[in-house]
Every structure is written in C-alpha cells, then in structure tokens.
Design a protein around this nucleic acid. Sequence first.
DNA 1: TAGTGTGAACCTATTCACAGCC
DNA 2: GGCTGTGAATAGGTTCACACTA
Lengths: 284, 284
Amino acid sequence: MTADGADVQDGDGQAEADSRTEPKQSPEIEVPAARERARAIPEAAVARLAVYLRALSGLADQNVSTVSSDELAVAAGVNSAKLRKDLSYIGSYGTRGVGYEVSVLIGQIERTLGLTRKHSVAVVGIGNLGHALANYGGFPSRGFPVSALFDLDPDLIGVPVGGIPVSHIDDIVKVCTEREVTIGVIATPAQGAQEVCDRLVAGGVTCILNFAPVVLQVPENVEVRKVDLAVEMQILSFHVARRQQEAAAEADQSAVDGADIGPPGSGGQVPGDVESADRMVERL
Amino acid sequence: MTADGADVQDGDGQAEADSRTEPKQSPEIEVPAARERARAIPEAAVARLAVYLRALSGLADQNVSTVSSDELAVAAGVNSAKLRKDLSYIGSYGTRGVGYEVSVLIGQIERTLGLTRKHSVAVVGIGNLGHALANYGGFPSRGFPVSALFDLDPDLIGVPVGGIPVSHIDDIVKVCTEREVTIGVIATPAQGAQEVCDRLVAGGVTCILNFAPVVLQVPENVEVRKVDLAVEMQILSFHVARRQQEAAAEADQSAVDGADIGPPGSGGQVPGDVESADRMVERL
DNA sequence: TAGTGTGAACCTATTCACAGCC
DNA sequence: GGCTGTGAATAGGTTCACACTA
C-alpha cells in the first residue's frame, strides 16, 4: 500500500516546518475555519477522498441515497476505520446508527477537493499518450476541460485533436494565460519536459501532472505530481521477485541447518541488461 | 510526498501481521540471506529505488562513474539522508569519503527490483491509452517486452499494433499462459475491468497495472497497482483550492478580531456539477 | 441497535546527527 | 576532510476500540 503509485515529487517541503507557530496563539477566539481545516487534511487522506468520491458517484447513479462506512469502504477498497477517519477530516456529515447521505457526502468532498470550480487543462506533447489524453471524450466532459494542446511538430500545429487545435510549444505562455489554464499535463519526452514545465509556470499554471521521466524543478508555489510507468512496472517487478524468493525460501525446509547460502537454483538469474527500462516512457 | 500518486490498492495487508514470528528463532546461525532482506525493504523505499535507478542510468550515459549521496539525491529529487537509508536497505555498496560506484549501484538495484529477469507484458484494451502503450517504441525495448495485446473490437483483432497482433479478450487465458505473461496492464473502460482482471489472473498473471477506475478484486497472491488520472487531477485540484484559501486567509489581516467567519468573498464558489470528473478515465 | 466520530495505541516512514571509515 | 551507514528521535499514517447518539 505504498499509496505512492504516482508519487508526488514535491520539492521537499522542508523549509518552513511549522507555519502556524503556536497551537493557540491567543486563547480568545476559536479562529479555526474551514480554511484551517484544508491545511489539516493528511495528504494520504486527500488521495483517498477522490476515490471515495468515485465510489459515491457510482452509488448515486444507482439511486442509492444512504451508505454506511462499511459499505462505502468496501466499494472504495479500504477499511471502514480509515474511511471514517478520512471523512472526519472534512467534517461530521454522517448520522450515527444510519450512515451517510450520498449526495451530502459528494457535495462535501467536491467542496473539499476544490471541484466546485472548473480547472482548465493543457496537454503538452501530442504523441501517443498526449493523443490519448486529448482524444479522450470523458476527459473534457466535466470538471477538467482540456482547453489547450501543444506540440512542436509542425505537421501537428493547427490540427484539431479531440476538437482542439494543437498550438506550438512556443505559444505556451501566451495561450495558457489567455485561457486561464490551471493544470498542465506534460506528456513529452524527457528532454523537453523541464523547458515545457518552465513555460507552463510562466503561463500561470500552478499544477502539473508529469508523465515524463524527469524530476522537474519548479518554484515552491507549483504543485507537481508524477506518473511514471517505468517506476510502476519496476515496483511490480520487485513484488514478483519477492514472491519468487519467498517460494524459494519455502523450499528451505531441506536445510534448517543451512549449508551455505548460495542461490538455490531458483529464481536467481544473472544480471543482464535492462539498463533502460527507465527510458521506457520517454517516447510516450 | 504522498508518494501515492498511483496508489497501490493492495488488499489490505492486514491478515498475517508478522509472518516472521520471532526475531531470532534459533540463536545459532545467522540465517538472514538476501532473501530475508527483500521482505524488509519498505514499500516507499522500493518506489524510490526505481527513481534512483533512472537517475543512475542517466549518469552512466554521461560516463560518470562515481556519485555521492548528495549528488544522486539531487538528481532523484529526494534528500540525501533518505537516499542513503534507502540504499542501506539493499546493502552497503558505497565507499566512505568517496561515494557510490554508479555501475555497482545500478547492478544492485536491478537485482533487488528483480529486473535481471524479463517480464512479459500484456496490454488489455487497445483504445487510446492501450494504443499508446502498445505503440510506444521504448516500451518493449528492454526489460518489459509487450508480448500480447487484447481487445474485444472485432475490427481490431488480428491487426498488428506496435508490431503485435491484437488477440481477442476471450483468449486471454490461453495466450497469457502460452507467452508466460507476468504483468498485465488493464486499459479498458471500467465496466470490463474486473472481468479482464479475472482472466489475466486465470492466465497466470500475478501483477496488474490498472488504469481503469475500479477497485479490482484479486486473490492475495496478485499484486495490483492503480494509476488513476481522475484522482491525480483531483488531488491537484485540492492543492489549488488550498492555496487559494491560504491566499484568502492572508487577506485576513483585516480581522484579527474576526467579526464572524463567513466566506470572505474570496474563492468560495457555489458547488456545481463536476459529478463525473470521476468518469473521466473510463474511456481511456 | 446499528453505526458514527475520535482519542489512544500502534506501526511505518522520514529526518537528524554522528560514529566510523577511506 | 569528506562521505557513508545507521541508531535514535520525530513525524506521519493506520488501526483499535469504545463512548456517544440517532
């Protein structure tokens, strides 16, 4: 449960450890507003809220009006204690002995996640993946309209993809500013990614979803999330390997008095190439 | 930092809390082999090892033969203490006062991640995303050869995509078994995902990378990782919202003696639709 | 009675800081 | 002097278990 699949590569939020210095500065007024609360929601919980939201939408589609934490937990693939705690971060919207009203919960989670506002999206790099993102009908539908596409291939400029004409990378700043893009998706090869990122930032984009296999350098007011297929694959690979080792170890009933520990002819292949499983995503 | 971008939706590794019951069962032999160690590496560290590996490959390409933890940490976007600790889980391959030999580290990380073995990949759902994955040249190159593609669209069956002919979904079990697929990538709409998953598992696949927005049900010996664009977007959205709230709160210099806490006309939009930002990825 | 909300215990992960070594 | 490797301290997240309430 790394919950880190697509890890955030945040710039090491080290600096100002505790912005809100004292717990209760003046013991007078109970200042904590909803504002304060946003600060307080653990990262891990935020990620799950999005998952709950999907589960809830599914329930709403089936005209379910009420769920218990147990039911919702199952639908979302977590345990109910965690779910309740997560929900408690956004407030008390359940009814004891009954459960949660689906519509209320949807509303509250949307509010918390800031989904009550549209976020214009720009996709940069209209290669295979960029195409997929841009073409993708459900994408612009609601919540995250794709409002700009960029590439540097002259053959692509002006060509509409998913209904939106591709602009040139050189126009990122201008177009993003004009169209008030808030989320930039980088689907370029690794080489161009930092450059693209800089331009997006210059164009006022404060959130970036990065598919390129590079660690982006951004100012601290910009949020980057990274999705890395190579990393995902390699993590899976690790688990295969571990399982094989365990299986091999199981066969160690033979040697409780282990006679040297050489590779027991099981899964121990010779190191090979593989060198650039990493480069995998580069051309996506 | 959430490191959960593409979260693992692991089946709640609750059951057998401590498999290795006693620390040192028999005080005789020092049994801990490399085997034991794999168990011990924290999930979070595994994910980062993959990142380090990429950084190291980059260095190797530039003919750098030695790195310090500081240098590598910068390249990988983490801090050096974390990096050293992570590396310590796989052994002591550095030289004090000097640093790490790039080639050695690459070899060791690859070994740890099980990359010394090829992992056949099957992609199911040759829509936009599936196409992207299959077409993608760097993908099959090394480490993770794509050896099977599946879809249910009759028009696609037999058509080669990225050099591999698409098979029908009904043949998943047969083909996966034949070609010894170990990693299955699900890029279908949500509806079909569980069904596809079941077949992959029946075909001997033990690792699944799931792009479909559903919580897959799998036997406990199967590892699932999930990549969910909608969730990523929503997490970014949350951070935009939080920032806006902070900005708004900053404007609260006016009321240190806060006169009621109503929404100060800042970022408080009215809840809207958005309802299915969730459904976003469905057609990917 | 059924199920939420939450303090407290527990476990995992990150950071610190320094001993040990080249 | 510089840098690794690692215990110890801290922070962050999860689970437990139960008081509370509709």
